[in-house]
Design a binder for these strands. Structure first.
Length: 244
DNA sequence: CGCCAGGTTGTTG
DNA sequence: CAACAACATGGC
């Protein structure tokens, strides 16, 4: 099975994902309208917040945090700037690592004020590679967070590699488990059509697939991709041995 | 209960 | 550069 086959399978299984979600009135919405138009500054900043808050954290907890921010302050840059460290910590608490994440948000805000003159749209004027380099220079923003912001916020063609991506594709036998972030990203970018819609969808589909089937201890018996998966075969063989 | 979650940073060998 | 600890809440 090739990379594009995986995409087609997952796409057929789960349908259109419409990432990145937006939080409005405490609801988490997946809106197809962003396939057609660029995000505005507030929408991009909200993605930055979400991308930071979801580091090693389930999205449901991030929604709680974003909902707190939304109702007590607002999700815009200026709203966040009006919060004290303590207020920020309290509001984002449900997303975990809340003290560290409060520092990261402050670090992000400093970056926007200083390097971008307070305007996130400045990044869209740069060449993608330069925008990425800048984001990676911010304390608290690593490669996955940067690529999430660039791909979903700015529509720049970087594939987002997360723990799920490594898990799925190493289990399928298409990737080395210990390949570096950059190596994995290049593998995807070289083997996918140069189309941010596909980058966006595939990453979202991988997350959905891992939540439903390919968890740490996977449900290989009922997995729709088991017949193409090395790991599923391995576990099936092992189960077979034990009954003999 | 224990395990796990859409990472990043700092420290150490 | 690789390995490991620290960071933390909430759902199952």
């Amino acid at each position: 099975m090739r990379l594009l086959d995986v995409y087609k399978n997952l796409s057929g299984l789960f349908g259109q994902q419409n990432w990145w979600p937006v939080v409005r009135g405490g609801q988490c919405l997946y809106l197809p309208e962003f396939l057609e138009r660029p995000r505005n500054r507030d929408e991009i900043f909200e993605i930055m917040l979400g991308a930071l808050l979801t580091q090693n954290t389930v999205w449901g907890n991030v929604v709680k945090a974003l909902t707190n921010l939304e109702s007590k302050a607002g999700l815009s840059l200026s709203s966040i700037k009006g919060l004290s460290r303590d207020e920020l910590e309290t509001l984002i608490r449900p997303s975990g690592y809340y003290k560290q994440k409060a520092l990261k948000i402050e670090s992000l805000v400093r970056f926007i004020d200083n390097a971008l003159q307070g305007e996130v749209m400045e990044l869209s004027k740069l060449k993608p590679v330069e925008a990425r380099r800048l984001l990676l220079s911010v304390w608290g923003i690593g490669p996955e967070t940067a690529d999430s912001i660039l791909l979903y916020g700015y529509g720049m063609p970087f594939f987002v590699v997360d723990a799920y991506t490594r898990r799925v594709f190493s289990r399928l036998g298409l990737l080395d488990e210990k390949a570096s972030y950059e190596a994995v990203r290049q593998f995807f970018e070289e083997n996918l059509p140069d189309d941010i819609r596909i980058y966006r969808e595939l990453h979202a589909l991988i997350v959905e697939f891992c939540k439903r089937y390919c968890m740490k201890t996977p449900k290989c018996e009922i997995c729709p991709m088991r017949t193409a998966c090395l790991y599923a075969k391995l576990r099936a063989d092992y189960a077979q041995l034990r009954t003999e």
